[in-house]
Design a protein around this nucleic acid. Structure first.
Lengths: 176, 176
DNA sequence: AAGACTATTATTAGTCT
DNA sequence: GAGACTAATAATAGTCT
């Protein structure tokens, strides 16, 4: 029987916490430190195990610092991200102006998932995962539809990216 | 005694794997899928628990797609990242042109850490963690020194970012 | 306040469908 | 080939320094 085997526990160990913002500011900062490191470690492992490129940007909680993770380099991947937006704006201006909701769906989905907790799987048929398949066409991701929210104010500098795009395109011709 | 208690294990469970690129392509893709989701989940939790802003960009292994995680939005944080580079280039051109190695140190550090495995703590005194403290000055992170590698080819479009910068700065005046 | 500790929760490698 | 399963590994919440 394992009822009260008189083992004196030194700590209570890890405990579950509610899926909400941590109230206590000190705990919140400690968690921010620990989990940010954990996130970067996970990213490192993903890079090593699969050869993936990853960029992570995390402003400090007071938005005074920027913690970055980048392999091979944050700039290289961000260049391509920005270039992709530029390309979309410059090439076809009307065709895919709408139904462009592929990006940033993960957060809202994850939030729903987390809030729901470990709900049973039979009643989550409406929670389809985003269906981004890796081989739907031969094009590159920066030519695909993008989310255009907040792009208005970016248009001005997007035009200036045209020259950069050529450099970037040649830089990523090596496929894995 | 727990020697061969005749418990038939259904699976071997999770197993350790070497800290290196996974050879088998199918396993590599499966791991890329699973761990990418895990990474985004970790990011979601960090957002929720601490109120942090996070951007993650992960090109697919063939570099044909881009998987993004962004809260509140990838564009908003990237704008600030890019604006920070622009600001650095426009303001002081000579003072902090060198000793700018604060970014992207995590990957190399983590790689070393991972390769070393679970080495004893007494002989890693040379592996200091990056010392980015959150309150060294009252400035914002986009005014701090940045890594300028690969910036040459970006200069042209950086200049065009000047107008954007004003918008962005006002957008992040709300501190947490 | 930054790091060590540890019991517990969370993630996941391999396997099977 | 995308998802369920599960034993084992990995991350971490709270505590103590």
């Amino acid at each position: 029987m394992n009822v009260n085997t008189n083992v004196v526990k030194k700590t209570q160990g890890r405990r579950k916490i509610a899926i909400k913002k941590i109230d206590n500011q000190n705990s919140r900062h400690v968690t921010f430190l620990k989990r940010r490191l954990g996130l970067f470690k996970k990213a490192s492992e993903l890079c090593i195990f699969t050869g993936a490129e990853i960029v992570i940007l995390v402003p400090s909680l007071k938005r005074q610092h920027l913690f970055t993770f980048g392999h091979p380099s944050a700039d290289a991947i961000i260049d391509r991200y920005v270039t992709r937006i530029s390309s979309s704006l410059l090439s076809s201006s009307t065709t895919d102006e709408f139904n462009l909701q592929q990006n940033n769906q993960y957060y809202s989905h994850m939030c729903k998932d987390l809030e729901a907790g470990k709900k049973k799987k039979e009643n989550i048929e409406e929670e389809k995962l985003v269906n981004i398949d890796d081989n739907n066409n031969g094009g590159y991701w920066w030519n695909e539809p993008i989310d255009t929210k907040g792009i208005d104010e970016l248009e001005e500098f997007m035009v200036a990216l045209e020259n950069l795009k050529k450099n970037v395109t040649s830089r990523v011709d090596e496929l894995c």
